[in-house]
Simulated scan of single mutants.
Amino acid sequence: MAVTKDNIFKPAKSSAEQKASSTDTAARQIVLAEAAERVRKTESLRKLREAREAEAPSIAAPPSRAARKKAAKA
């Protein structure tokens, strides 16, 4: 192994700018991963809901109060 200054001396401390850049990169990766997971979960839940709604018989909503009042007056 060749003797160089990199082998003998400790590497210089990283600057604040490099630390900020690495922190920013890590934070962005985490945010993107969470967003992708959220989209995947939403799509999965939507498919399950649509399948459940397709299997269940459609139930008509009960008439509103205004409709019941009109029917009672007539």
Rank of each mutant, 00 (worst) to 15 (best):
E55M: 11
N7P: 00
P62S: 07
A56H: 01
E55T: 02
E34H: 06
A36G: 05
F9A: 09
P62Y: 02
A12N: 05
A67W: 04
V3H: 02
A51K: 15
S15T: 15
R40L: 09
Q18L: 07
R38K: 12
A26S: 06
T42D: 04
T23P: 00
K10S: 07
Q18R: 11
A12Y: 01
S58G: 04
A54C: 08
K70T: 00
P62W: 03
A51E: 15
A60P: 06
P62V: 02
S15I: 03
E17I: 12
P57C: 00
R46E: 03
K41S: 03
R38Y: 09
D6N: 11
R49K: 15
K47N: 10
E17M: 12
A20N: 13
V3G: 00
A54M: 11
A54I: 06
A33H: 10
L32C: 04
P63F: 01
R52F: 05
K5S: 07
E53N: 13
A27Y: 07
S22T: 08
R49E: 12
R52S: 09
A60K: 14
L45C: 08
A20Q: 14
T4I: 05
R49F: 04
S64V: 01
E34R: 15
I30S: 07
V3N: 02
R65T: 03
V31I: 10
T4L: 06
N7L: 11
K10R: 13
T4A: 02
T25H: 03
A16Y: 05
R65L: 07
S64F: 00
